[in-house]
């Protein structure tokens, strides 16, 4: 993993720089103007959050079945990135909404679903931090239940409410606004690469922490 890490960091940095240039060069959107550009960061951050959920869910199930510490470390990394990318989405969304809708927050389906899923993974991290010994299994169950509940959240909240611009805007983008596609794609890939870089770094950190803990234990046993 170390071998690909440095090239990956460089690629991420280059793509981010390119994305910024592309975003700056796209002409402002006709009705929303400059605020619309926030969407080049907003959408990719949600892509990052859902990638984090997927990583955390798969790793948690694998941990519950196999009990391998590496799966647990991957799950933690995924959950932390879920919360991080989700936070970017939760901050950029209201900034745009204040201009576009006139309010910071709407109890709309997509917003509510994202907030709920984000909260579940915040709870995951809280369990890990304050759960004491055995918290890994507990947290894995939270991730499993959190993922299993998402279709229900999706269904119930959708029936309950809907105002967000449909995500079906995205596939139509090449036709409706072709000039927006390159910056969007660059930004989305940059965010995904960043996700990969952070994931690898966080897994490596977890691995080293585990190694240090083992050394401490060995040292104390030797001293006693």
């Amino acid at each position: 993993m170390k071998k690909i890490f440095t090239p990956l960091v460089i690629a991420t940095a280059v793509l981010f720089a390119a994305a910024l240039v592309l975003i700056a060069r796209v002409p402002p959107e006709s009705t929303m103007g400059l605020v619309q550009k926030i969407f080049y960061f907003h959408v990719p951050s949600w892509i990052g959050m859902y990638a984090g959920i997927a990583v955390c869910a798969v790793a948690s199930i694998s941990y519950l079945v196999t009990g391998r510490p590496a799966a647990d470390r991957l799950a933690t990394s995924g959950a932390e990135l879920t919360v991080l990318f989700g936070l970017v989405g939760l901050v950029t969304g209201p900034l745009w909404a204040r201009k576009a809708w006139g309010v910071w927050w709407q109890w709309d389906a997509r917003l509510t679903i994202a907030l709920l899923l984000w909260l579940i993974f915040v709870a995951y991290l809280v369990v890990r931090k304050y759960g004491g010994p055995g918290a890994e299994k507990l947290a894995a169950a939270v991730a499993l239940f959190g993922t299993a509940v998402s279709p229900f959240v999706y269904m119930s909240v959708n029936i309950w409410r809907t105002v967000h611009p449909l995500t079906s805007v995205m596939p139509q983008l090449p036709k409706s606004a072709p000039e927006m596609v390159p910056p969007m794609a660059a930004s989305a890939f940059a965010f995904l690469l960043l996700f990969g870089v952070l994931l690898i770094a966080r897994i490596e950190l977890g691995r080293r922490q585990a190694a240090v803990d083992e050394l401490y234990l060995a040292h104390e046993e030797g001293a006693a």
Partner: peptide, 25 residues
């Protein structure tokens, strides 16, 4: 599963409410 955890009183609602949102809706 929280029985073994010291902070169980406060962790239970924190975990339970987001996951049971579909039931309350």
């Amino acid at each position: 599963m929280l029985m073994r955890v010291r902070t169980r009183d406060v962790l239970l609602p924190i975990l339970l409410y987001p996951i049971t949102v579909p039931v309350i809706i």
